[in-house]
Amino acid sequence: MNTIIIDGLAFALPLFIIAIGGIFSERSGVTNLALEGFLGFGAFVGAAVVTAITGGAFAGHETQMFLWALLFSVIGGAVFALLHALLCVKFKANQVISGVVINILATALTTFFTSQINTALFGKPTNKFVLGVCDKFTVPGLSKIPVLGSVFTDMYYFEPVIIVVALAASYVLYKSRFGLRLRACGENPHAVDAAGGNVARIRFFAVMISGALAGLGGICFAYVISASFSPSIYAGYGFLAIAAMIFGNWKIGPTLGACLLFGLARAAGYKLAQSLGLASAFSDLFMIFPYILTLLLLMFFSKTNRAPRALGEIYDKGKR
């Protein structure tokens, strides 16, 4: 049970922060299929920066390097998201196509630059940056609570970071003026315009926030899954985050529920496969578990599901 919660959270929280990124973008009315690309590119920038700083030798200052990686992933994701923002907001591009293009470009560019940087630094054109491990900690006292205590046991350092960022993000989205306008942009951009808001600017920032959060989630995935950055980061987590966001009806609270569901069901599936001692091929069967569960739950919870009204529409001032 403990390991299920520990592993489940380590998967659910990065997914959650990426999904929040998706919420920011889509609630402002910009369809975001580019999360996959954002998280990959963000993680790439973070990993590349720490590799360049340390030259691949992490011993002694892993935690410090981890924080640098986090910071630069956020920046990298935000900068890369500029492209999506420019295309969708300024150049009135089809938002779906832009998202797909950004995923293609992210895969190509990061693979290419990873091998280039590795050639320059180490003389070997590998497509992988080794990151070292992310330390874990246990909260004294709280971890002694039965069952719930395992939430506070063996936490990765990024977990509290994600929780804080998620809280800040939900404050911005639901309580600040910017958040109110952002949500209004997704429902009725003309009203925002009439009220003196700048639709283009709000959407621009929303997409950049989306990229920053996805970058943060991306580097966490890189640490927790393989302790390295490689093209295997493009395993569809961005699309999973989109699914979680839609499952959560484009709201932060329910989305957290969806992500926890994924994470815990996934960890439970792994654990079950392990404890039954079956051949490795059977683990694939247990991997299906979270997705089937989600589909079944969706049958009950989708009745009131509704996308932001102006989602995917290019804002045209003259249109009535």
């Binding site: 569809g236 699309f239 999973l240 989109i242 699914a243 839609i246 499952f247 991997m287 299906i288 997705y291 089937i292 989600t294 589909l295 969706l298």
Partner: peptide, 10 residues
């Protein structure tokens, strides 16, 4: 979109 993604994985 969600059901397609879920079915993809399944």
């Amino acid at each position: 979109v969600v059901s397609s993604i879920m079915l993809n994985y399944i």
